[in-house]
């Protein structure tokens, strides 16, 4: 993180105050430390209990790997679809705008859990029999989470596009730019400037929504940890306070993943920063 901050030295001057991100990171570290101290010292949990970690460690790692796999699959898919939806909704071609609106309204209003279940159980039937497998069901279930998130991202991109005044496009046309050129050089950079903050928000939701895969035994961190706790309670091998340790560890992992992505998004936000348009600071 330190090197990333250093290479950004030039842009950092543009931030409202100079060490904003350093302060945020410090805050996160201090907050995390306080949380751990409360658990360890005041509540008497041993967070690094060897008895627990010798059993749970491999489960934990396998869960993280699977969760990261789902994120790597779902994030790009949902952004691509969301971007296409946002563009389609502002298109002057009604034939594009109308289906996009139907898509957004549908996926926005249906519980993602239901879509995940339908996609993983019914989805494979759409494929030839030799492709049908448990893995296919899981992939389709994960994609369903992406499709759901895409409807929200579509609205974020639509708002971004609509925030660009008409005159900007006219000015691009007036210097002879073709539609795709003016989109890339003029409209998109300005639309993204306003889309990125709400998009980070949606990414944070999406990362945590991969835990919905637990409903179809997705094998990701949440699901594996839940199984582990059930087994250790049922078989009597575990202790009750493991419950707090395991779920604290799970929460910490999701926090780190979310925080990493939203920080990365901040770097993008700086790239699209326009001087003089910072808005108010109160």
């Amino acid at each position: 993180m330190a090197t990333a901050e250093a290479t950004l030295g030039r842009q950092t001057e543009r931030a409202p105050f100079p060490h904003a991100s350093a302060i945020r990171i410090t805050e996160a570290l201090v907050g995390g430390t306080i949380f751990v101290v409360v658990l360890e010292v005041f509540l008497g949990f041993n967070l690094l209990d060897p008895a627990l970690w010798s059993l749970y460690g491999s489960v934990f790692l396998a869960g993280i790997v699977r969760t990261l796999t789902y994120i790597a699959l779902v994030l790009p898919v949902s952004v691509s679809i969301g971007f296409a939806l946002g563009w389609a909704r502002v298109s002057r071609f009604r034939a594009l705008a109308w289906p996009a609106t139907v898509y957004v309204e549908f996926f926005r209003g249906v519980p993602p859990l239901v879509i995940v279940i339908f996609a993983s159980i019914l989805g494979p039937n759409l494929f030839p029999e030799r492709f049908q497998s448990v893995q296919l069901g899981l992939i389709l279930g994960a994609l369903a989470i992406g499709l759901h998130s895409a409807s929200f991202q579509g609205e974020i991109f639509r708002a971004g596009f609509q925030s660009v005044p008409r005159g900007q496009l006219e000015a691009a046309q007036a210097i002879g730019m073709q539609p795709l050129q003016s989109m890339r050089s003029v409209v998109l950079p300005q639309a993204l400037r306003l889309s990125l903050p709400p998009l980070s928000n949606e990414f944070a939701v999406l990362i945590k929504d991969t835990s919905l895969m637990a409903i179809i035994s997705g094998g990701e961190l949440f699901h594996r940890s839940q199984l582990f706790m059930d087994q250790s309670v049922l078989t009597g091998t575990g202790q009750l306070h493991w419950l707090f340790i395991v779920w604290t560890a799970v929460a910490a992992v999701y926090f780190v993943m979310t925080f990493t992505v939203t920080r990365a998004m901040r770097l993008l936000e700086r790239k699209y920063h326009a001087r003089g348009l910072e808005g108010i600071s109160i």
Partner: peptide, 13 residues
């Protein structure tokens, strides 16, 4: 043919 607009329309970014 160049054009200059009433509201400037400079690219804000």
């Amino acid at each position: 043919v160049g054009m200059v607009f009433q509201s400037f329309n400079l690219f804000t970014h």
